[in-house]
């Protein structure tokens, strides 16, 4: 059980980071982004491409050798590429759609289309075979009550650090406050002199960088696959909705709960031999909590006039 709790912490951190990114984007733009999973995968795939040695048996981008850069530099470059990709999505797809007053359902369908397109693009240019980062194998150690590798422990620490920095950014910086203002009302933000288009662009960049980071973490504890984003997306949505969609802190907590429940449920007696069904318990708990509290754990009911 403690083993699974440690794994749950790890998965919880990854889902939290991805959920915060999804929730931030939804809150500010009202876009339910089904392509979020592919941005998660992009981070992992790019880090793998940058960091694997040119001589390795690397089969992403079959005609192109990986670059063999240091792992730290690869992470930084991958996260930057995710940010640029998010900016391009906003500038080339979602801003024109917004200008033409596309409805929410049409935009949702477009994000599903982008998700399917990107996923299969990864499959064409990469491979269906899982890849690893060029990282050493590590032995598990005791951290407090948890059995984790030093790398796992670092992921947890960095994940928490990222969320603390994000929380401080959104609460206290001018751009963070403007993001919250646009989340409340784009029209009122414009009336207040805020360039909401610019804030939405920053939101896409920040959200995509966070999603890419979550993807890299996921690649570090498992492996890198063309469809890894799609596989984790449902849990990310569950975390976001459970915490209260549109609230960053809620997404953080919701993602964490989902991650822990998914892993810990494997250790339950009636789940023996059914580990592949581990997501079911987490999703059932999400439904149960939403029945009691429809706005999610941290969603707030507010006066509207």
């Amino acid at each position: 059980m403690l083993d699974q709790l440690g794994n749950g912490l790890l998965l919880g951190i990854i889902i939290s980071v991805a959920s915060v990114a999804l929730s931030l984007l939804y809150g500010v733009t009202r876009i339910v982004n089904f392509a979020h999973g592919e941005i998660i995968a992009l981070g992992a795939i790019m880090a793998s491409f940058f960091s694997n040695l040119p001589t390795s048996r690397y089969i992403f981008l079959e005609n192109t050798s990986p670059l063999g850069l240091s792992f730290e530099l690869s992470l930084a470059l991958s996260i930057m590429i995710c940010g640029i990709f998010g900016a391009l999505l906003e500038l080339c797809v979602f801003r024109p759609l917004r200008r033409n007053d596309f409805g929410n359902i049409a935009v949702l369908v477009i994000t599903i289309g982008i998700s399917i397109f990107l996923r299969h693009l990864y499959l064409i240019f990469a491979s269906s075979k899982p890849q690893d980062y060029p990282l050493d194998l590590q032995r598990r150690q005791q951290y407090f009550i948890f059995d984790l590798t030093p790398r796992d422990f670092k992921i947890i620490v960095y994940g928490i650090l990222i969320m603390v920095i994000f929380g401080l950014f959104i609460s206290f910086t001018s751009i963070g406050k403007q993001m919250r203002a646009v989340r409340d009302s784009t029209e009122l933000a414009n009336i207040s002199g805020i360039n909401s288009d610019r804030i939405i662009l920053y939101t896409w960049i920040l959200s995509s960088m966070l999603a890419g980071t979550a993807g890299i973490f996921q690649g570090m504890i498992n492996d890198v696959r063309w469809n890894m984003g799609f596989l984790i997306l449902l849990l990310v949505f569950a975390g976001t909705v459970l915490g209260g969609i549109g609230t960053s802190f809620g997404a953080m907590v919701g993602g964490f709960i989902i991650g822990i429940v998914v892993q810990v449920s494997v250790a339950l007696p009636f789940m023996e031999g059914h580990a592949e069904a581990k997501n079911a318990i987490a999703l059932a708990i999400m439904i149960f909590i939403l029945l009691i509290r429809p706005q999610g754990i941290f969603g707030i009911k507010e006066r509207i006039s």
């Binding site: 001018s174 203002a181 409340d184 009122l188 933000a189 207040s192 002199g193 006066r303 006039s305």
Partner: peptide, 21 residues
């Protein structure tokens, strides 16, 4: 505006800060 003229999730101080910074 007549309605929806404050940012409900922001504090009063932050609402004022949002006016032409």
């Amino acid at each position: 505006p007549q309605v929806n003229n404050v940012f409900p999730s922001l504090s009063l101080q932050e609402n004022l800060e949002m006016g032409n910074r």
